[in-house]
Write a protein that binds this DNA or RNA. Structure first.
Lengths: 202, 202
DNA sequence: AGATTGACAGACCAACTGGTTTGTTATTAA
DNA sequence: TTAATAACAAACCAGTTGGTCTGTCAATCT
């Protein structure tokens, strides 16, 4: 009984998921190759199809077990602490901007990438992805609704619509940067986004 | 010499381009199958590879000869007539919204779709696509700069940044709707976009 | 009219790809 | 200890896919 067992099924499965997530981020789901995942993990077909019934099942697992928790941790949970939505959001985005390296700017948002590629192609993907967007939207909408109650957010606004627009704008900006690889595009548009968010304060 | 020649190379080539454009819109470039284009057009491999050197060459031609002219006609040329950028843009978007059917809402913006999928994968695609974005950006930026000169647009703004942000926001909104198929998402975010554009007037 | 060439048709191919099958070994329950 | 099973390894397979090759026929040029 060694410290690190030769056979560690949970770890094996997780390695497949992590590598697959990276591959999808780079090539998209359609560009994801099972063989490539095996090459990177050093596993074989037997191992893969022991853990996953199909490539589609892997895709589902990547969404449910990698992408979703990642979004919740990075973009949903933090919003629950917002008390002054506009100012807290600006501060939050500033910090996210600093943690962003040029490489990430090139690959874009994994959630949006999958959305654009897969939602028209596979309903089972679309529904899973939509549930993640909804989590984010709800958290952001709630933050602004709280702000309206405590007087930090203008009461003439619709928190629901604001959340929809903000998410769209943020993803739009990230999406633009996939093509213009420089960070200038990001910061120019980000400047306007900041102005807009500031205009929401009461 | 019949009225419609049996062999009409220009028409044949154009049919391939049109069908390929539709297929890319539905499945993406990676999901585009040469065989599917042949099936729809009723042509054969011989015909296809007579007109295009490769699948990649077809992709390039679709961008240069279908997508680019379409964007120029629909989203670049009209902006040149703007005299009061914010109000003209709102009116322009309202009209575009009315012409939009649910089907288009599901497929998204062809330019943005290709951007998200291909710009990290193929530099030759990225450069072609970037040149189209640039055309749109310049037209929009110029419209706002003109507005600043003639007093319809606030002078404290950066026309360049505004154009970047607006394009990002518009594409972001369209992108969100690919996942939430209903038009409600579109109109909620659109409402905020309208408010923002109005806030740019002098 | 005859030769040349452009515009296809369609059989063919090699590489790739997701998936299956059979076999082997480590782990675990009885 | 041993039987059962989970966790793989690896050869194999069939369908797909982009691309090639040879041939045919119509248009054009001389």
């Amino acid at each position: 009984m060694s410290a690190i067992a030769l056979r560690n099924p949970d770890l094996t499965r997780q390695r497949i998921l992590d590598v697959a997530f990276e591959e999808v981020l780079l090539k998209g789901y359609q560009g994801l190759r099972v063989d490539q995942v095996l090459k990177v993990t050093g596993l074989t077909k037997g191992a893969f199809y022991h853990h996953f019934a199909s490539k589609q099942a892997l895709g589902h697992a990547v969404i449910d077990e990698v992408l979703k928790p990642w979004i919740i941790e990075k973009w949903v949970e933090p919003l629950k602490d917002f008390t002054d939505a506009p100012n807290d959001l600006i501060q939050f985005l500033d910090q996210a901007r600093q943690e962003l390296d040029t490489n990430e700017l090139h690959t874009g948002c994994p959630l949006n990438n999958l959305t654009q590629e897969m939602s028209p192609l596979d309903e089972s993907f679309r529904l899973r992805i939509a549930s993640i967007w909804q989590l984010w939207h709800n958290a952001l909408s709630d933050a602004f609704a709280r702000g309206q109650k405590n007087g930090t957010v203008r009461k003439d606004l619709n928190a629901n619509s604001i959340a929809r627009f903000l998410i769209a704008a943020m993803e739009g900006i990230i999406g633009q940067c996939k093509c213009f690889k420089d960070e200038k595009t990001f910061d120019e548009a980000g400047e306007c986004l900041r102005d807009y968010i500031e205009s929401l304060s009461a």
